[in-house]
Nucleic acid binder design. Structure first.
Length: 662
RNA sequence: GCGCCCGUAGCUCAGUGGAUAGAGCAAUUGGCUACGAACCAAUAGGUCGGAGGUUCGACUCCUUCCGGGCGCACCA
């Protein structure tokens, strides 16, 4: 509702400025006054206009105030401070609109492709991967059509680098470091499966060991590096026993990753794999296009002689000079680099790779939909995932430069629209605090002990595994639920503990803005108090309890309040904490729109916490059930109901559930 | 060396150029016969890294310096 009024004021003011002063302002800054007594919307517009109109801000504000006063839903306009225009809502009317669920629309046309998770399938997922997946999954929820908003048509992809060097590394580990045969490894895998040992955990250790092994013996280093390269080539080539082993391992780990993510409510629509990008020759088509469009050219002199290269973004080298800084796309031996393959893949995403598409086959069934995987020759019919109008790549900030290269290639090829609709949804890494690393039993060097944080590393086997963290969170929540709700069955208590654990973890990963390095500390992550997911969930439980004890239904209360004249109970200082709840709930769409625009789910997470905080304040200040005035009681019940409804809605957008009790 | 990011309360973090810079944690104090305290209230805690500049107005924009991080492959 808040956003509707914002938009109304915005349009009205734009027209007024046009007719009154002949001014065109694209943006009219709007904020919330610092205290609720001052009103609901504050406009600092008069300051901006002062110099252009050569008038005092207060004088301008006075002239504009009369114009705004007539807007539907505005009860009053006041000039405050040096020239703020403070708008007061008609609280009773606003409340009824809020109760009816009126809010501005969000959404539009076009297919939006969100890609996240994309963990190399050679080891267990760790906290860094969790940040990626939770960020991507939440953003996808903000965009997607649901019962709250029209939203957009969204597809979620998880890119699988099943033929990369990291998968090759674990293959080397088995075949060369441990001297096993392909048959030996297959036997081992079935033994692991039989004993319930997680393959991703097993490979976590193997990967760390093989990474060390390459350089452990100086006399062997060159030979081992060669083995690594030879293995990589076999894996890429396919149709050989080594590649078959790589595929078995990568698929087994992928299945584990999907299970891990599903514990957090994270699902995918499509799993494009590098093996198909290679074998379906996406690159050949991309290369032709790039050469035709003059983006890719051969170097005949200098250090990159014999390579095919493209200019880097921001390059100032003229066409006559040799661009020594250019990005190599095709090596002098004729093979394509990672960025080249990535350009081909991204042309496909936008439907710009003529005649190329993946084959699709079903890979995993979720309760509500199918997850497809790429293959050479797929099933019909299948959904379409290319031809996106917007893409969002959730990839950490360390890949800013490579991502910028891909965008530069699109732009250079003349695909400006694609380049403009390519969002690198980047975020800073997750690191461990030295204390956390020591608590987890890692050896920490003297130097690392003095650092603020230590980067996690799959190659070093250093980090907190995702499933371990989830297990610990569930265990911690379960202790509390067992204590508080002995009357519930074991299954019920476990379910609630899981909802709390997932809520805590998702909130923890979302409360930081994207470019903040998360210095991960178990103690903070395992906390259920203060600014946490469970705090928000608990506020909902409290509202639920009030409604239950009053023997009323949330929606019924919210329907009744629409025909109740409760205006008197919304005004005045003692009632501000009631009105504040309504006002805050009405801002959900405003915050959601902002979170989408800035690709910053943290805004919505913080909003959830602030609304829960306001509700807890209301809860302590206004006893609902003992209220004697029937009208006021009805309003208080409706206030609990609206807080509950909108908190649940917000948590839903964040991928968190509201437990029935806590 | 070049590029990008970050320096805000003891700690972890918010803060679209606008009103008195805010939360959480930790500390101190008070509040449970329950609408369940996974909570609330109060106190204390700040030269917003330093210095210039732009502006009616700067934590926010620009320049520069200091401190920290991350990138700068014919790796992926």
């Amino acid at each position: 509702m808040y956003r509707i009024l914002q938009q109304r004021v915005h349009t009205h003011l734009q027209n007024t400025l046009k007719t009154k002063y002949d001014l065109d302002l694209a943006q009219i800054p709007m904020e919330q006054p610092p205290r609720i007594e001052l009103g609901e919307i504050a406009l600092p517009i008069a300051f901006e206009l002062a110099k252009r109109l050569k008038k005092a801000p207060r004088a301008i504000a006075t002239e504009l105030a009369d114009e705004i006063r007539g807007i539907e839903g505005v009860r009053d306009v006041e000039i405050a401070g040096a020239g703020y225009l403070n708008i007061r809502f008609d609280r009773a009317a606003a409340m009824q609109q809020i109760a009816r669920g009126e809010h501005a629309g969000i959404g539009g046309d076009g297919f939006r492709l969100v890609e996240h998770t994309s963990i190399n399938p050679n080891k267990a997922a760790h906290v860094g991967h969790l940040r990626n997946a939770i960020l991507g999954d939440t953003f996808q929820r903000l965009l997607r059509s649901d019962n709250f908003k029209r939203g957009y048509d969204v597809g979620v992809q998880n890119y699988i680098d099943n033929t990369g060097v990291q998968v090759a590394d674990v293959v080397v580990g088995f075949l060369h470091m441990e001297g096993k045969s392909v048959a030996d490894v297959k036997t081992l895998l079935s033994e692991l499966r039989a004993s319930g040992t997680r393959i991703d955990y097993y490979l976590w250790d193997l990967y760390a060991r093989v990474s060390q092994w390459y350089t452990a013996d100086e006399a062997q280093t060159a030979a081992r590096k060669e083995m690594r390269l030879a293995t990589l080539h076999l894996v890429e080539e396919g149709n050989n026993p080594t590649a078959e082993l790589a595929d078995i391992l990568a698929t087994a780990v992928l299945e584990r990753h999907l299970e891990t993510m599903q514990r957090l409510g994270i699902e995918y629509d499509f799993l494009p794999r590098e093996s198909e990008i290679l074998h379906l020759h996406f690159w050949d088509a991309a290369r032709r296009e790039m050469i035709e469009r003059g983006v890719l050219y051969e170097v005949t002199e200098g250090k990159n002689k014999g390579c095919w290269v493209m200019r880097r973004p921001g390059s100032t080298v003229s066409a006559e000079e040799v661009d020594e800084d250019a990005k190599v796309i095709i090596r002098s031996n004729g093979t394509v680099t990672y960025v080249g393959k990535d350009i081909a893949y991204h042309l496909w995403k936008f439907g710009l790779l003529p005649g190329k598409d993946f084959g699709y086959k079903k890979f995993h069934e979720y309760p509500t939909h199918t997850c497809w995987i790429s293959t050479m020759h797929g099933e019909e019919p299948h959904p379409t995932f290319g031809k996106a109008s917007w893409i969002y790549n959730v990839i950490d900030s360390r890949q800013n430069d490579p991502q910028a290269n891909v965008v530069e290639a699109l732009r250079g090829m003349g695909y400006d629209s694609a380049a403009d609709h390519y969002v690198h949804l980047n975020y800073a890494m997750v690191a461990l605090t030295p204390r956390c690393a020591i608590d987890l039993g890692y050896e920490v060097s003297e130097e690392d002990r003095t650092r603020a944080y230590i980067e996690v590393s799959g190659r070093k086997g250093f980090g907190v595994k995702a499933d371990d963290l989830i297990d610990r969170l569930i265990a911690a929540a379960k202790v509390e639920v067992d204590k508080r709700h002995p009357e519930l069955t074991e299954d019920e208590r476990l379910k609630i503990a899981t909802q709390i654990a997932v809520g805590a973890l998702r909130y923890f990963m979302l409360k930081f803005t994207r470019n903040t390095v998360i210095a991960f500390d178990l103690r903070d992550a395992l906390s259920f108090e203060g600014e946490t997911g469970p705090y928000v969930q608990y506020a909902i439980v409290r509202a639920t309890n009030i409604l239950r004890k009053a023997s009323v239904e949330q929606d019924e209360v919210l329907t009744q309040i629409q025909t109740t004249s409760a205006a008197a109970h919304l005004e005045g200082e003692e009632n501000n904490s009631i009105w504040e709840i309504w006002l805050m709930t009405s801002r959900l769409t405003t915050v959601l729109a902002q979170a989408i625009e800035t690709a910053e789910p943290a805004h919505l997470a913080r909003y959830a916490f602030q609304l829960a905080q306001a509700f807890n304040n209301f809860y302590h200040r206004h006893p609902v059930l003992t209220e004697e005035d029937p009208t006021r009681r009805q309003l208080l019940l409706a206030t609990a109901a609206i807080a509950r409804r909108e908190l649940i809605q917000t948590l839903h957008l964040l991928g968190m559930e509201a437990p029935p009790v806590m």
